[in-house]
Design a protein around this nucleic acid. Structure first.
Length: 599
RNA sequence: GCCUCUGUAGCUCAAUGGAUAGAGCACUUGACUUCGGAUCAAGGGGCUGCGGGUUCGAAUCCUGCCAGAGGCGCCA
């Protein structure tokens, strides 16, 4: 934001240090850590320590303070700097607030929705997320995946990357076949009405089927015979599916579509627009080709002649002596492909067909070894993009009563949580905003309910496991989505009453600490976007959004806007409120949370 | 056996080598005839799992333990 001034100061400090023979490396600026103060600071410990290492006998903290004092002397008369201080080895620069306040607020209002957007980086990135299996219903664990992936996609896009959103549902495998078998045997021809009813029904069938197929303790000979008969039927179903039996394929297509309909509805609810759909069933053939390619190129070893599988000895091929990536099977002895094989084929498609430079996988952390192996094999295959493949793993979501288990039907369905969230939001809303019409009330309740849920999932670092507690996830008080949305609503409310936003304002009034804190945060938004995107961490933006809302709420309470003491102060504060509203909206948008006008 | 992640206030979590380790929830107290109280202001609450080390400086990096979770060639 203040690049020119900062550079001028750096030049002076560098020139001085060079003259004095002080070994100064880089000058790292950071924001002043004092609340209500606005400026930047740097420290000289590194330079002092370097002197100490070079043989001079110096007390490092003392020497750092000396250098800071001397540096402070150089900056007494720089335009835009109101005050300079050297303290405890730090050099603190306090900004001249009228100049900077105006500059920040003008920039936000000029750029509007684009405030904070990074310059194009000339790189294409694909974010793969939303990979639930079909023939199940969408639960709260899947929601963490989608919420995280969407926030990440929005962040990298806004930061300047050309971004492609990809979904990769698992639409084949034993779980899918199990549902087909049970449906065909017990429910053939039936079909519940309603998108979510159908999706959830498939899960019920799966749970029932699993119970029938699982060995029980102390089972009687009859029970055992029954179970084995079922098992044989399921195997037969798998065989028919594999052989492309038209009837089984049609059944598969129909039920698969039920699941995908539900998935699409949930994505629509979360405002997720997937650009490219990959299906596991569609990469099966390319995967088999990859196997041949890897054998031909000497990367994979074919042990089929001796009754084995096709394997890649990754460590050996990379020349590693210590066990790291180990050895992995890429084709079973029976000639069928595996998850890893398909991911290799899919990566090749991403690189070659979609021209992806950088590939991010938002997948459960339990698969981190799998992705390390996949990336290592991609390196062996010579893809330069392999270096820019990144697995964003996230901890799994469990329930207060223990791990979720689709097999046992012990899951919390996303749809149920959302319905609950809307109910709760409606209850609060009818007390807080009684004059909304029915349609608007419904819409706001959905925005607020979703805001609470989404924020609760983004406010925990991705590598941590999470226990999903409904009351906590759907809380509207404190550090929550609705708290941030409410700041936006309040800002909006002031501006609505004001009628219009003044075209310009000089910030010449005495700024309160609350105003300074708020403007400081607004100024930091662009760099926060870059940090969050660069580290692939939506949490960084989630924290920022809360801090900004918090600063606004405090400002709101203690600083009058519409009843400011003078017209010029009123104009400045109105523009500040407008800038805060805009930045809150931009930050929320990056998290995938809508910013309502009223609530 | 090997590898990865986690351990911070009563609870849920921030803080990725810098200044006095911060929020929310819960608890106590105060603030609506004034821009919306889904809010604000204030208070108590800490051996950052334990021991060593590196550094001017460590919750953060290294190392050894302890505790929890996860992963490790024909599941996905």
């Amino acid at each position: 934001m203040f690049v020119q001034e900062q550079q001028e100061i750096e030049v002076r400090i560098r020139a001085y240090c060079a003259e004095q023979g002080i070994p100064l490396n880089e000058i790292k600026w950071s924001a002043l850590p004092f609340s209500g103060e606005w400026g930047i600071s740097t420290s000289f410990f590194a330079a002092a320590a370097a002197e100490a290492r070079s043989g001079k006998s110096v007390n490092v903290p003392q020497r750092a303070q000396e250098i800071a004092e001397q540096a402070a002397g150089l900056i007494r008369n720089v335009a835009g700097i109101a005050r300079v201080e050297a303290i405890k080895g730090y050099l603190n620069l306090y900004f001249e607030t009228p100049i900077y306040a105006r500059r920040v607020v003008d920039a936000v209002l000029e750029q509007g929705r684009d405030y904070g957007r990074g310059a194009p980086k000339g790189e294409r990135v694909m974010v793969e997320y939303a990979q639930p299996n079909t023939h199940h219903s969408f639960h709260i664990g899947h929601a963490r995946n989608v919420v995280l992936g969407e926030a990440l996609a929005r962040l990298v896009e806004f930061a300047g990357f050309e971004t492609i959103r990809a979904s990769y549902p698992g639409d084949l495998g034993l779980g899918v076949i199990t549902v087909l078998w049970a449906y065909n045997k017990f429910y053939k021809g039936q079909e519940p009405q309603g998108v979510h009813e159908r999706g959830q029904w498939l899960l019920k069938i799966y749970v029932e089927a699993t119970a029938l197929l699982e060995p029980k303790e102390n089972e009687t000979p009859e029970e055992k015979a029954q179970r084995e008969a079922y098992e044989a039927e399921r195997r037969e179903m798998y065989r028919k599916w594999d052989a492309g039996d038209p009837e089984v394929r049609a059944l598969w297509q129909m039920t698969r579509e039920w699941s995908l309909e539900e998935l699409r509805d949930i994505l629509r609810l979360l405002d997720v627009k997937i650009d490219v759909w990959f299906f596991e069933s569609e990469v099966d053939e390319p995967a088999k080709q990859i196997v041949e390619e890897l054998i031909a190129r000497g990367i994979a070893d074919d042990e089929r002649p001796s009754g084995g599988a096709v394997i890649v000895k990754i460590d050996e091929k990379l020349g590693l002596t210590k066990e790291k990536y180990r050895t992995n099977v890429i084709l079973r002895a029976d000639g069928t492909t595996l998850y890893l094989t398909k991911d290799l084929a899919l990566a090749k498609i991403k690189f070659e067909k979609f021209g992806v430079d950088r590939s991010i996988y938002v997948v459960d952390v339990r698969q981190s070894l799998h992705f390390q192996q996949a990336f290592a094999i991609l390196r062996l295959m010579g893809f330069p993009q392999a270096e820019k493949c990144y697995h964003l793993g996230y901890g799994f979501v469990s329930l207060p009563e223990g791990a979720m288990s689709a097999r046992r039907g012990r899951v919390v369905l996303f749809k149920d949580v959302i319905d609950d969230a809307v109910r709760r939001a409606l209850a609060v809303e009818s007390a807080k905003a009684p004059d909304l019409d029915e349609e608007q009330r419904r819409q706001v309740a959905l925005q607020v309910g979703l805001g609470a849920l989404v924020y609760s999932m983004l406010a925990v670092d991705n590598n941590r496991d999470m226990v999903f507690d409904v009351d906590q996830a759907l809380s509207f008080d404190g550090r929550t989505g609705p708290y941030i949305q409410n700041a936006h609503v309040r800002a909006n409310s002031i501006l609505r009453k004001a009628g219009q936003i003044p075209q310009q304002a000089a910030f010449t009034h005495e700024l309160t600490a609350h105003e300074v804190t708020l403007i400081d945060l607004l100024a930091r938004f662009p760099e926060t976007v870059q940090q969050a995107a660069g580290e692939y961490r939506p949490l960084v933006m989630a924290n920022y959004a809360y801090d900004l809302a918090n600063a606004f709420h405090s400002f709101y309470h203690s600083v009058p806007v519409l009843q400011s003491e003078s017209e010029s102060t009123r104009a400045a504060r109105l523009r500040l409120v407008a800038a805060a509203r805009q930045t809150l909206a931009n930050a929320l948008a990056l998290l995938g949370i809508t910013a309502p006008e009223v609530m």
